[in-house]
């Protein structure tokens, strides 16, 4: 049984059809990266997976439970699906430590003291133990994003969805976030990442999905898809992002 199964998902906002029949699967430990021009439904697709948006048609299963079934209690499944936002969305009134521990207390019913010990471990994992007492406004974008990854990790998720995790960051801060993500990938975490960081793709991705105009046009291992794409559209898009993001950051 696949950890994630997406079957023929459609989503429209008013007259605008954003997703036009997307299907794919992920097994435990898979690292997949979704690339594609802006406005092609990458974020919408991710948001459908944890129920922040409901698809109009199609079904989604996480570890055998159908997310899209109205009878499913989505609050019970969401801790299993980590979500990392482009704009971090750390809880602004809480310290880094409380940001990571609050889910354990409120959602998992853990004791505050136990939750804090666990949260501290997760902060250690993203290299930010010393920022435990800092508020989001006191941290850099890169640090905030690492705390938000720790917040997702604390819930012990089966997979983590990353929605353009480095797009809102200054260039010099991207590396520290990618490093955390690469460590996670190497540690066996199942990850679905919307990103145009070619370096990340090359380093850890098992498969790249090219999403264009609401459909997965092409998919393949980075070594094939990045060097020898089958479709002209994929080729043009890759040229654009390589020009924009550069190959050099690969080594980051």
């Amino acid at each position: 049984m696949s950890l994630l199964k997406v079957d023929d998902v459609y989503k429209a906002y008013g007259d605008l059809l954003v997703l036009k029949g997307v299907s794919f699967q992920m097994e435990k430990g898979d690292i997949k990266v979704i690339i594609g021009p802006s406005g092609t439904g990458k974020s919408t697709l991710l948001r459908c997976l944890n129920g922040l948006t409901s698809p109009d048609k199609g079904k989604i299963w996480i570890d055998g439970i159908e997310v899209t079934d109205p009878k499913t209690n989505i609050n019970k499944i969401r801790p299993d699906i980590g979500f990392v936002f482009q704009n971090f969305n750390l809880f602004a009134h809480l310290t880094a430590l409380d940001n990571v521990s609050i889910g354990l207390v409120k959602v998992k019913g853990m004791k505050k003291s136990e939750a804090r010990v666990l949260a501290m471990e997760e902060l250690h994992r993203v290299g930010l133990e010393e920022k435990a007492g800092s508020y989001p406004a006191e941290m850099s974008g890169g640090q905030q994003q690492r705390v938000s990854i720790a917040r997702a990790l604390a819930m012990n998720p089966k997979l983590i969805l990353f929605d353009e995790p480095t797009s809102a960051l200054d260039p010099e801060l991207i590396g520290e976030v990618l490093k955390v993500m690469i460590d996670l990938a190497k540690g066996g975490m199942t990850m679905l990442v919307v990103s145009h960081e070619i370096g990340f793709c090359r380093a850890v991705a098992d498969e790249i999905l090219f999403l264009d105009e609401g459909k997965i046009i092409e998919k393949g291992h980075p070594s094939e898809l990045l060097t020898n794409p089958s479709y002209q559209r994929t080729k043009e898009f890759l040229n654009k992002i390589i020009k924009l993001y550069g190959e050099e950051r690969d080594k980051a």
Binding site: N75, R78, P79, F83, I102
Partner: peptide
């Protein structure tokens, strides 16, 4: 974004309104 982040870790709407 604060509401979405709270819902994304599994809080109910009421929990999110109250604690976040």
């Amino acid at each position: 974004g604060q509401m979405e982040a709270a819902r994304a870790i599994g809080m109910s709407k009421v929990q999110a309104i109250w604690s976040i």
